[in-house]
Write a protein that binds this DNA or RNA. Structure first.
Lengths: 215, 215
DNA sequence: CCTACCGATCGGTAGG
DNA sequence: CCTACCGATCGGTAGG
């Protein structure tokens, strides 16, 4: 837009985005590709198109970049997935939309999902504990929301078991598996997970939970 | 055993094990805790109780330690989990034992499971591609074994859907979720996954797949 | 947002 | 399995 004369523009990402946004995007992508310990501040700076020292105007340390990415990822996930559980419809419909929202989020923002995993598993020491605590808080929130949801589904007589805790557990394990499988490189299926296939898979899963499942 | 006079014994792990075994154990534990990039050869050497340079008598590089851990992890997983699918019993019983074996493996060898994830997601560049290829080959083997298993279950009339591919997919997503959830730090449930609870959860899951599931 | 620089540590090698 | 050492790079700072 300004001038096309120089090619001193940043090597990747949207050059129109603010430096801060490009920093976050570059860090998320690199952490997801190489891991936290495998990514250097110089790597991030190169992708952003600035010198390494300039990154320290936005964050006091590499650790704080990870923590900010984690907070933003959790917020984005909740914003994208939580509403479906409270929307109108039967409990089956609402849970289906919740799953679909989670899968779409994973497809659209794989780096955000990667951050959760990085925070929970790749980091040692004090930073690791801080990050893990944040992830566990988020997972506990989700678990509680699902248990409340299933408690209402039990009341409504829409599920075949009366234990919301086990129902939530089964769903969470299944949803975690599907979402994780969508992450880059893990395409152990030769076909993409289309909305149609997700729906078929969901029907197979849900019919074990729905009250009086089909014969 | 030899003498208890010095405390120059290795700081952690079984001092009686061979240096090579302690090297593998230390590397697996540290990679799982801090990630591949977050673990240095000096870290490994310290835990083994030798100098860093001595590690190079066993492996020519840090990369080859990871690759050997990956090969061994895949073999151990297959040895622990694959036989259940071919054992006697109904297809439901065999799949249940397969799931239980996988969960037990994850509980007993969490570092081995972590290596799969590290190989698939934390590594960039040429090593990353080598490791990812190995993981994908293993996952494809497992997928094929499960699809063959479900094809026989369809023939036997023990499942409610005629599509082995979707049946295998649903099971794999669920099993991956359960196994992943057993990994260290991810205890987002306040209770351990006992055999009894796993069985209850399995029943909830399987009744959606079993032909003519309970009402 | 830059140049210049810090001490510490990285993976790996030489030579025994 | 050790001591001694290599050049490169690490996260981060000073000062502008």
């Amino acid at each position: 837009m300004t001038d096309a004369l120089t090619d001193s523009t940043p090597p990747t990402g949207d050059p129109a985005a603010s430096t801060h946004d490009r920093l976050l995007s570059a860090a998320a992508t690199l952490f997801a590709e190489r891991g936290y310990g495998g990514t250097s501040m110089a790597d991030i700076a190169e992708q952003v198109g600035v010198r390494k020292a300039s990154l320290y105007n936005y964050y006091p340390s590499k650790e704080e970049i990870l923590m900010d990415l984690l907070h933003r990822g959790i917020d984005a996930w909740a914003g994208a997935c939580a509403p479906a559980l409270e929307a109108p419809g039967t409990h089956g419909e609402r849970l289906w939309r919740h799953l679909r929202a989670a899968v779409r989020f994973a497809v659209d923002h794989p780096e955000a999902v990667s951050i959760f995993r990085i925070a929970a598993t790749q980091i040692g020491g004090e930073l690791g504990e801080r990050a893990m605590a944040e992830v566990n808080r988020h997972k506990a929130d989700h678990r509680r929301a699902l248990e409340a949801f299933f408690a209402r589904a039990v009341e409504a007589g829409e599920v075949r078991t009366a234990d919301p805790r086990e129902l939530a557990y089964v769903f969470r394990m299944f949803a975690n598996g599907v979402v994780t499988n969508q992450l880059g490189g893990c395409h152990d299926d030769d076909e993409v997970l289309s909305d149609e296939r997700l729906r078929r898979v969901w029907d197979l899963f849900w019919n074990g939970i729905a009250d009086g499942g089909a014969a």
